[in-house]
Each structure stands twice: as C-alpha cells, then as structure tokens.
C-alpha cells in the first residue's frame, strides 16, 4: 500500500480511538466517579443514576464500545483494502 494511503488509514483509526476512548472515560470516570454524587440525585427506577453508572451502566457501555470498534475497523480495513484475505 502507498505510504500516503497508510497515513490516512492510521489517522482515521486514531480518530475512532479518540472518540471511543472519550466515551469510555466519560461513562466510567465521569458518570461513575467524578459526577456520581450529583447524578445520584436523579433516579433511574430504583437506582440512583451515579451508582447505576458505577455498578452497571459503565460495564454495558464498555461492551457496546468494543463491538462498535470492531464494526468501524472492519469497514475501514475494507475501504483501504488492507483487510485479511
């Protein structure tokens, strides 16, 4: 593959990582720790919201993030023709 194309591929990869890891940070460190106290004033059914993020929600989001990443990268590989044959 040409060098320029490779750089483009890598930059797109880094962009995806940046977006996904920002969400990763917000749900766990943000909602689960830093803002947990203020979120606890909001109720999600029987759960205080901050507590829910810390013990349930962040884990669900983690799983979803990985599956989104897999999808994005598989598409990207095809687009740049670097997927495995």
């Amino acid at each position: 593959m040409q060098n320029k194309n490779l750089q483009l591929y890598w930059r797109r990869n880094l962009k995806y990582l940046l977006i996904l890891l920002t969400i990763w940070f917000i749900v766990s460190y943000g909602c689960g720790i830093i803002f947990a106290e203020s979120l606890n004033t909001i109720k999600l059914g029987g759960f205080p919201l901050g507590f829910w993020f810390a013990q349930q929600g962040s884990i669900y989001v983690f799983v979803i993030l990985i599956f989104i990443y897999v999808r994005l990268m598989n598409q990207l590989d095809k687009e740049f023709d670097v997927d495995e044959k």
Partner: peptide, 17 residues
C-alpha cells in the same frame, strides 16, 4: 466496590482498542 467492577472490565476496552 465500584472501583473493582469498572476497573476489572474497563481494561478490556483498552486491550481491544
């Protein structure tokens, strides 16, 4: 106890990405 729940699962996001 949330630190264990988030800590021992969130690492897989780093691992995968």
């Amino acid at each position: 106890g949330s630190q264990y729940l988030m800590g021992w699962t969130g690492g897989y996001v780093l691992l995968a990405l």
